[in-house]
Design a protein around this nucleic acid. Structure first.
Lengths: 356, 356
DNA sequence: CTGAAAGCGCTTACAG
DNA sequence: CTGAAAGCGCTTACAG
């Protein structure tokens, strides 16, 4: 805490007005004589007066701060999410209080409760929030919140999530339309909502676009090594698929390694696709076809929704929203090199190939 | 803001004691009868009482919050830094208020000033903080702060930074000891402190370990494409170096691409090394020798230092600290594959090679 | 060990 | 348009 700091009283004394007038002048209220406002503003700036945030929060009941509660502060997903949230926060002059919890539900609960008096609203990411009553138990009542990428059947909070089902369906459709007939799927971890939605999308699109084709589902856990195992298992099987769709990019890369080790040609022998569009995806050889999830946009939209909820307090709008991922076709799923194209306009792939 | 929320008064009434007693009991003060404390704690938890942070901050003059002010919330560096800071913050039950500023010094200043009343101390990253008086102008007085990776000749704040000079020297020494005699250097952007320190380390170590060898310095700007250009220029030159040390990994990768394009063998013909150990470094072919900078540790140490400063207010301890990067030897700088070894104990490189 | 009261630095009806 | 005063929800000397 700043110790020797100038307060509103100092400004008032110096400008020879009351603290009420200083407050009004600085906060842009209408009812202040223009000459007085000028004097106050000038005095405040001369004294380098900065309102004390806690004091202001206590009396105005607004903190101008948004709480972001995440399970983890790790890697690409987190940093993209924060980046998107930050951009919107800055545009609206809001501060960001970030909080992470690892593991224990109680710890998560504490993280949420400790937000009281610190924030005007909450952005909560809780991928495994299947525990019923968890949020309602811990979320400070009357505190607006928006959930991100969270599965909650009948939430009283708006939820912003990725359309994993639609994305996976689109990928299967792409593979089918590229002429692939036997499409295998490497699953994500059991109990993970993203994973199960992607699996659902795979099954549904398979039934729609390749009626009669049998589903080939291999276990996985989103880690690269499980993709590698799945790849080896696929090669050991009697009947090889002509396409493999992994529930995320890391597994696709592990699978790619297994295929390369065995001399299987991609996409010649087997097409390969992932999900997420991690930075690595474009750098491996061949570059990986995948579904791009715009995490930054997800974060920005979530904060936008939250800000609206904060303005319209009382009006409960729990409408959820879904972000559709984008198909990025790269070489790993095309038959000829000329086929490869990126559906997204914009920067060309960086010139770091995986040369050998 | 939570609207209808239970306050300390409610707890006091319910437990039939004064608010002062509730405050003492909940804050673990000594002078409370054990039976009373029990009653209060139980009542508070029954009512789901959560102290209002702003009110507490205002009267106790402590926010339990640390401000983190960064130029950007982008990519690996940021996310690693925050991760390291967060780990320490959690261990000490501190909250994290993050703030980014883009561009304008005034905006940076505003970000700093707005921290008054919100935080107990500040972690500031300002890589180009050559503007004199900037920090002293804007940093709320009497607010402890620790600067990260910032060049400030005679700062009154402690600075925590990467030993870029030592790291670059160590790399040149490694190359020289591996038998390389003509070591070229791809520079970073002019005016960037990290870049100029690395250049200084290159020159110094060259003079020390290869006396008489002439320095070969190529321009660069930390971007991959400038590394690519430098690589082509190197190949076009009359006398080729037998090692290239790029001031960061991105440029090393661009250079690698140029070499591969030209059929130059690495490390056979030319050894290659970078700086940073970005995730990609181990995935390219051949895997890139580099200096690992432990960003998370940097962040954690900085917060540790700040917490000490907050405790010992008044005691001005502006001692700076430097983090020594670690040499990671990979295939790009070894003559035979058997030579390759990773100096760091721990996990083996992930099995995602850049196969072709 | 406990309570009454002042005070932290603001904002905001309420009068005038 | 302006000021005096109450109040936001806590903590902390000060008495007892």
């Amino acid at each position: 805490m700043a110790r020797t700091n100038v307060t509103i009283k100092d400004v008032a004394r110096e400008a020879a007005v009351s603290v009420a007038t200083v407050s009004r002048a600085l906060n842009g209220h209408e009812n202040v004589a223009e000459s007085v406002r000028k004097l106050v503003v000038e005095t405040a700036s001369r004294l380098r007066y900065q309102p004390h945030a806690a004091a202001r929060s206590l009396s105005s009941r607004r903190t101008q701060t948004i709480g972001v509660v995440l399970p983890d502060l790790h890697g690409e997903f987190f940093s993209e999410l924060i980046r998107g949230i930050d951009a919107v926060a800055r545009a609206h002059r809001r501060h960001l209080l970030v909080s992470s919890y690892h593991g224990h539900p109680e710890e998560q609960g504490e993280a949420l409760r400790a937000m009281r008096g610190r924030v005007d609203g909450l952005l909560v990411l809780s991928p495994y929030a299947d525990r019923p009553g968890f949020l309602t138990d811990y979320l400070p009542q009357a505190l607006p919140a928006v959930l991100i990428n969270t599965y909650l059947p009948d939430s009283s909070y708006p939820v912003l999530s990725i359309d994993n089902f639609g994305g996976a369906s689109a990928m299967v459709r792409h593979l089918a339309e590229s002429g692939r007939r036997r499409i295998a799927f490497i699953c994500g971890p059991q109990g993970n909502f993203d994973a199960s939605e992607r699996l659902r999308g795979y099954r549904s699109a398979l039934a729609e676009h390749l009626p009669g084709a049998e589903a080939m589902e291999l276990p996985g856990d989103f880690d690269e090594s499980s993709g590698y195992e799945a790849g080896k298992r696929i090669l050991a099987g009697r009947q090889r698929p002509d396409a493999v769709f992994a529930a995320n990019d890391m597994m696709a890369l592990g699978c790619l390694y297994a295929f390369n080790e065995a001399g299987v040609r991609i996409p010649g022998d087997i097409a390969l696709a992932g999900f997420d569009d991690i930075p690595l995806a474009r750098f491996v050889h061949p570059p990986l076809t995948t579904m791009r999830v715009n995490i930054a946009e997800l974060g920005g939209l979530a904060l936008g929704k939250l800000l609206v909820a904060i303005e319209n307090e009382g009006v409960d709008d729990a409408t959820s929203q879904t972000l559709v991922p984008e198909l990025i076709v790269r070489e790993s799923s095309t038959t000829s090199a000329g086929d490869a194209h990126n559906l997204r306009a914009g920067a060309p792939a960086p010139a770091i190939p995986s040369v050998s």
